[in-house]
Design a protein around this nucleic acid. Structure first.
Lengths: 218, 218
DNA sequence: CGGTAATCTAGAACAAGTTACAGACTTGAT
DNA sequence: ATCAAGTCTGTAACTTGTTCTAGATTACCG
C-alpha cells in the first residue's frame, strides 16, 4: 500500500533509523533526508531572525519540499520548532557528555552544566528565541513532543548530578530546576534579565539539590 | 490639539485616573470607558475559548469599538492579553490581601498564597491559558508591560512572606519562585502536569525561602 | 460660536499560518 | 510490466493578526 519504499534490508541496504527515534512508521532514506533538510532549513532561518523568520513557505522552499509536504511532516510551525529543539538538544547532550562538569557537589555540577548550555544558546540567540518561544507557546496538541524535550532536559540534569536512582525529592528538585531554566531563558530572551541575573537564578535554584542530598552522589 | 477632552478639574469634574496607572497621557472618561469595555470583552472571550478565542475583530465588535481603535489602545493581541492579565492580577492581589495566609513559616505562607491564586485560575482555565500564553510569548516590544506583571507578582509574594526589607538572597529566591510559578502554570495548562504536581513543585521551590531566612519574619 | 487637531469609524488591503485539491510520482505487490 | 495506494508538488483559498485610508466626530481654544 505505501509508497517510497520503507527501507528494509532488501534492495537498498540502510539501517532503518539512524537516530533512536521511536517513530511509528519507519521512514525511507529519501523521507529521512527530507526531514533532515526541513529541520536544517528551520534551524538556519531561526538562526537569522528568530521565531518570526521561520516562515513555513520559506522553510518549504529552502528545504526543496512542497508546502503540503512540510505540513505532512510537521503539522504546525510549533511542531516544527519543537522538533528543531529536540534535534538541537540531542547535539547538546552529546557535547555535554564529552566534558562532564567538574564541580564538587551535585548542585555545582548542575549549575555548571546549565550555564554551559546557556552559553551555547547565547551563540545563537535567534535560534534559542525561536525554539523556546515555540516550546512555551505549544498547546496540548504538541504535548508529546514537548514532553520529550522535557525528558531530554531531565536526562541532562540527572547526568550532571551523577545519580543512578534519584529519590522523589530529588526529582522534584529537578523539576523545579527545569522550570527555572525555561523561565529564566525566556526573561533573558525577551531582554528583561541580564546574563548575570540568569546565572544567579540558576545557582540559586540549584541549591535545592543540596537540600535533598546533603551528602552527595556519584 | 487633542480631542475628547483630557479630563481635568474644569468642566466635567472627575478624577484624572481612577486607577493607579502611571499612564503618560491621561484618558478622558469615555476613553477610560472604552478601555474597560475592551478589557472586559477580552477577558470574556478568553474565558470561553482561551487564547485562540480572543480574536481582535471579535474583541472590537464586543466592545463596540472600531478595529483601528482597538489597535490604538493595545498595539497587539499580546499587549491586550498582557494588559488583561495586569487587570486580573490587581483584582487578585486585592482579594488575597483580604485574607492573609496563615502558615507558620514564610515558605508555608507563600506556598499557601500561590496555591490560592492557582485555585482561582482553575476556575477560569481558558482565561488563564490566554493570559499565560500571551505572557510567555511576549517579545521585547511588550517588555514594559510584562515587567509590570512581574513586579505585581513579586509584590504578592513579598506580601505573603511578610517582609519589609528582603535581603538580596531572598529576592533571588522570590525570582526563582516566580520562574517556577510561571513554568508550572504552563505545564499544567498544556496538560503535561497535574494539579497535584503543580502543588508539589510550588512547595518544593518555596523551601528555598527557608534556606535564606532560617528564623522567620513578620 | 468656529477652527483645528486629534480621535474614532468602517472597510479594504496585506501578511503569514493553515487547508484543500488536482495531478504527477514512487513503491510494493501481483 | 502493471496496478493500486500512498506520497509529493504546485497552487489557490481561507483565516486571523495587523496596517492603511478616507471621512465623520469630538474636544480644546480663542
Amino acid at each position: 500500500m505505501p509508497a517510497e519504499a520503507k527501507v528494509d534490508a532488501s534492495s537498498a541496504r540502510q539501517e532503518q533509523r539512524p537516530e533512536s527515534r521511536p517513530d511509528s512508521p519507519p521512514l525511507t532514506q529519501r523521507q529521512e533526508a527530507r526531514r533532515r533538510r526541513i529541520l536544517h532549513a528551520s534551524a538556519q532561518l531561526a538562526s537569522r531572525g528568530g521565531f518570526d523568520a521561520v516562515q513555513m513557505r520559506e522553510v518549504a522552499e529552502s528545504s526543496q519540499v512542497a508546502l503540503g509536504t512540510l505540513y505532512r511532516y510537521f503539522p504546525s510551525k510549533i511542531h516544527l520548532l519543537v522538533a528543531t529543539m529536540q534535534d538541537q538538544l540531542e547535539h547538546m547532550h552529546g557535547t555535554l557528555r564529552k566534558k562532564p562538569p567538574t564541580g564538587e557537589t551535585a548542585a555545582e555540577r548542575v549549575a555548571e552544566t546549565l550555564m554551559r548550555a546557556f552559553r551555547a544558546l547565547q551563540r545563537e540567540p535567534h535560534l534559542a528565541d525561536a525554539m523556546v518561544r515555540a516550546l512555551t507557546f505549544a498547546d496540548r496538541s504538541v504535548s508529546p513532543e514537548v514532553d520529550q524535550v522535557s525528558h531530554q532536559t531531565t536526562a541532562i540534569i540527572l547526568d550532571a548530578m551523577g545519580l543512578e536512582h534519584p529519590t522523589p525529592e530529588q526529582l522534584s528538585a529537578v523539576r523545579v530546576i527545569e522550570h527555572t531554566w525555561h523561565s529564566a531563558l525566556i526573561t533573558w530572551l525577551s531582554g528583561r534579565a541580564s546574563i548575570a541575573q540568569v546565572k544567579i537564578d540558576i545557582e540559586t535554584v540549584c541549591r535545592l539539590i543540596d537540600l535533598t542530598a546533603p551528602g552527595d552522589a556519584k
